[in-house]
Amino acid sequence: MGNVLVWVIWVAAALSCIGSGIAVISFTNPFYSALALIGNLASLAVLFLLASAEFVAAAQILVYAGAVMVMFLFVIAYLGGRADAPWAGGPRWLQIGAFVVGAAIMIEVIVALATKAGGGLSNGTEITRSFGSPAEIGRLFLTDHLLAFEITSIVLLIAAVGGVVLGMKTQAEGEAS
């Protein structure tokens, strides 16, 4: 792959990523927002891939775009796509505040980057072929990041319990309604 091609793909993915991000927060219908998020996740996966993170990219597609978003779409379908105007409602200062906070974080980081760029960020360290491969990630998950691996599973387990508990109709609820 030529360098130019990489750049082209990268820019395309980055633009689609930002564009779909904006789409997520501006669609009225949550259904479209969720679809836009899938686009966002997919273009992110491309970026991951270009950053030599093959395994992360695969996980992104399989776990995120595949499983999580399907769950989202299910719930949205269950609720029946309620509409909600994106910029409507809410006090005006909140809207301004949202932009200010969002912009502040962006500017903060970008300024930080700009001042740093001369330093060393642009030139990455040479990376080996096995970098980001499933094998290496798997090895680290069983050695250095063993705890992280275990805890991730605990978190998922707790969330599963939560999903079941909250999704269930309870006795008390039956009496209350």
């Binding site: 805890i151 991730t152 939560g162 909250l166 009496e175």
Partner: peptide, 25 residues
């Protein structure tokens, strides 16, 4: 930072559920 974040999420998610556990209210 990784275990920090995961530990935080561990107890936070449990607390989110606990807070909402009185589903009849």
């Amino acid at each position: 930072l990784l275990t920090l974040f995961l530990g935080l999420e561990w107890f936070s998610i449990a607390l989110y559920i606990l807070v909402a556990l009185d589903t009849h209210r």
